[in-house]
Amino acid sequence: MTSPLLSTPGATPAAEDSPDVGVAWHYGDPFGEQRAATTRAVVVDRSNRGVIAVPGGERRSWLHSLTSQHVLGLADGQGTEALILDVNGRVEHHLVLADLDGTTWIDTEPTSTQSLLAYLQKMVFWADVAPRDASDELAVLTVLGPTADQLLELPAEVHGVRALPGGGFVRRMPAPAGSHAADVVVPRAALATWWQRLTEAGARPAGSWAHEALRVEQGRPRAGVDTDERTIPHEAGWIHRAVHLDKGCYRGQETVARVHNLGKPPRRLVLLHLDGSADARPQTGDDVTAAGRVVGRVGTVAEHHELGPIALALVKRTVPADTELVAGPSAAAIDPDSVTEDTEVQAGRAALSRLRGR
């Protein structure tokens, strides 16, 4: 789905092979857009995301039975994140939810919208729910930055949802850069109107380049990009945020409980610093190797305004943080702050210093 906002002056479209095809990659100054997101507020066109509506009196109990989240306790005017897992506990879909006025709204990755919808419709049985594709009805904009709260008059609750006049809603969510952020989900027919309204209120236009670079910096995974067909929630840091550990009776729950209670996941999501002098950057899906042995997989690759070339990667938990790595064509080092064990943090900082001294 191609956004009408691509006609905005300065908008450069994302590449055809990008997961964000159809929206702007940047507006002429991607590093300036990133810096603005850390000092004020920017608005990002994310209208390529799929939207699914789930109306019906049993929607919350039904979603509770299907997802990793405790949706049963989701009140009107609240939002959360959830996962759909397979029978082995591997991640199939990541969902962002908002419950408002008798409908639970789900937005998800554009590449998985139809498969997610097909699964939900298959699981209706006799429940009072009617999931439908609402991508033509609503579109997602994201406002992030330290002045986002003031600009949008956000609810005090972190996951609060507020209806917008004329349709749609504002949903406050954790921010890619550790600052405030909110999804402004608006009628698709009014997308350009809302874009103009937000930019005139002080939000600077920013593209997917800025949004993704800040997301990578914070270590927040994107399903289908930073995950593969073997990923379990623990590896990607989705425990607690998208998984409720005190609920059961959903597909894949046994794996979630077993790994949480008895052991550690086989891989972990880390932030990689890449050798900026390399002639080429790694691509999503490239191998991460150590001494010629494959130890992981590259996820999102980004150019950050301060950190330079960075990437998210799933690597084997047994790989020490100070290991010299190669990601695709580039030397790489694990960022120590993306590793929780104190001894590994110290080792990782030494490895990062060696990489920067190349």
Rank of each mutant, 00 (worst) to 15 (best):
T2Y: 00
L6G: 11
P9F: 11
T12E: 13
S18T: 09
P19Y: 12
V21G: 03
G22C: 06
A24N: 08
A24Y: 02
Q34D: 12
A36L: 01
A37G: 15
V44P: 14
G56L: 06
E58P: 01
S61I: 13
L66C: 04
T67M: 00
T67L: 04
S68K: 03
V71R: 02
G79C: 00
L85Y: 01
E92P: 00
H93R: 13
L95W: 07
V96F: 04
V96Q: 04
L97K: 01
A98K: 01
T103I: 11
T104A: 07
T111W: 07
T111Y: 03
S112R: 11
S115E: 15
F125S: 05
W126R: 09
A127K: 10
V129I: 05
V129P: 06
V129M: 07
V129A: 06
P131T: 08
A134W: 02
A134D: 12
A139S: 13
L144G: 00
T147A: 12
Q150G: 11
L152P: 02
L154Y: 02
V158I: 14
H159S: 14
R162I: 06
R162S: 10
F169E: 01
R171M: 11
R172A: 14
R172C: 07
G178E: 05
G178P: 06
S179E: 11
H180Q: 11
A181I: 06
D183C: 12
V186R: 03
A189R: 08
W194D: 10
Q196P: 00
L198E: 08
T199D: 05
E200I: 03
A201K: 06
A206G: 09
A206W: 07
W209K: 05
W209D: 15
A213D: 05
V216Q: 03
Q218C: 02
Q218I: 10
V225I: 15
V225M: 01
T227C: 07
D228N: 13
R230N: 11
R230H: 13
P233N: 00
V243N: 11
K247E: 13
K247H: 11
C249A: 11
Q253R: 09
R258K: 12
V259M: 10
R267S: 02
R268L: 04
L269H: 10
L271F: 05
L274G: 06
G276K: 09
S277L: 04
D279I: 04
D279N: 10
G285E: 07
D286I: 08
A290W: 05
G292D: 12
V294I: 14
V295S: 05
R297W: 03
V298K: 12
A302P: 04
E303R: 10
H304R: 13
A313H: 06
K316N: 13
R317W: 04
R317I: 03
V326M: 03
A327T: 05
I334T: 15
I334K: 06
E341K: 10
V345G: 00
S353F: 08
R354Q: 12
R358D: 05
